[in-house]
Computed example of a mutant assay.
Amino acid sequence: MTLLRDAYDTLLLDLDGTLYKGPDAIPGAAQALASLPQRLIYVTNNASRSPLDVAKHLDELGFVADEDAVVASSQAAARVLAERLDAGSAVLVIGTDALAAEIELVGLRPVRTADEKPVAVVQGHSTATAWPNLAEACLAIRAGAIWVASNADTTLPTERGLAPGNGSMVAALRAATDQEPVIAGKPYVPIMEDALRRSGSRVALVIGDRMDTDIAGANAVGLDSLLVLTGVSTVDNLLRAKPEQRPTFVSFALDSLSSPVASSDTEWRAEFDGTDIVLSGSGDPISALTAAAAVAWANPGFGTVQAKGDAAGRAVRVWNESFERVTDGAVASRASRTEIR
């Protein structure tokens, strides 16, 4: 019996929305990763905390992590700048002290005002970022400073729902400067390269809850991916995904890593009737979803998914409840046989 994890020696794991939401672990996530033989590398777009603090938080939530297993967008952003600037160059930091520390670690000089004539601006998520901070960055960028953003996630998941992410603040500066930043985090290559170097592997599976960052990042470097429906991306997002954001696998939860891979399910049938996708048959809800996804991707602009029969109706109801923990019939299914790279 082939399990989803068997083809990989390393798992590149997203954090927010995949392992935890806000301060709390997603139910069952730590147990799903416990005792796996694969190396676990934690890859986060959140630049607000140091890798050590991230590792401590993961340990507190029941995951096994150390500082060396954490790859953060703050580190990727600092590396991007270090490759472009002379040692000791002033970099205006819009973000936390943890981001400033990463800038210092690569031999650059973090500053907090445009009056210090920074040659670059680095921007990462901080709940304390406000107009005065953005104004300093705006002045520096307009004066010619290189602009690097740790990531462009417009939202981030919290225990109360989606809140503004670093990308929302990036959008404000983009509007104020008419400039585009270099983005170091997912889905862009710098952080993915850092993660692969840290892992020492090219046989890795990327796991995350966002198709626009985690899945697109995997596709950007030619890696397989698993979308878990525990965070930002929804079933509707999956069905309407652009080719560059389509995952290799999809599941409701991380316990699918230890489940058999079902490449097809002959009991489900999905057809496009010219307007909607009609789903019929029986079986587990994930196989139903992947059958529908294959047809949806071939027919962009479809209306809705129509369930034909009681089993299909139950499957669609499970999809609609997919942000809750699903414990029945956990089968990891290939999202489609369609080429996605």
Score class of each variant (00 low, 15 high):
I26A: 06
D178P: 13
D66F: 14
W319S: 00
T327N: 08
F249N: 03
D14M: 01
E193S: 05
L257G: 01
I207S: 01
N46C: 12
D255N: 10
P118Y: 06
S264A: 09
D214V: 13
I26D: 00
T154P: 07
A29P: 12
S225C: 08
T213I: 08
Q38C: 04
R202C: 11
E267Y: 07
R317E: 07
A130V: 11
M169A: 11
A137F: 02
P190W: 03
S322D: 15
S35N: 06
D16V: 13
H125D: 09
A30S: 05
E116C: 06
L33H: 06
I26Q: 06
P247I: 13
R269H: 13
L139G: 06
F272G: 12
G281E: 05
R109F: 06
R174C: 14
D236H: 05
P51E: 02
L81G: 02
G28C: 12
D273I: 15
S282P: 13
P51K: 03
R39D: 07
A253L: 15
L173C: 06
L173W: 02
T230F: 03
I41W: 05
A315K: 01
P110G: 01
R240N: 11
A312F: 10
P187I: 04
K56C: 12
A32P: 15
D194V: 10
A98Y: 03
A72W: 01
T113C: 03
L289A: 14
A120C: 09
D214A: 10
P110C: 00
S233M: 07
F272T: 12
A270H: 03
Q245S: 12
V261D: 10
L134G: 02
L36A: 04
M211R: 04
Y188E: 09
L156N: 04
S333Y: 07
V228K: 01
G17P: 07
A270P: 00
S233V: 11
E339M: 15
R49Y: 06
P181N: 01
A163E: 11
S126P: 00
V106S: 09
W319G: 02
G107C: 08
E339C: 14
L13E: 09
K21N: 08
R337M: 15
D265T: 08
I277Y: 04
G107Q: 04
D68G: 13
D97L: 11
A311N: 11
A135F: 03
N46K: 01
P37G: 05
V278K: 11
D115K: 03
R84V: 14
Q306M: 08
T129I: 14
F323Y: 11
S201W: 08
T2R: 15
S336K: 08
D265C: 13
E83H: 15
V318W: 00
S201F: 09
S263T: 15
G217V: 09
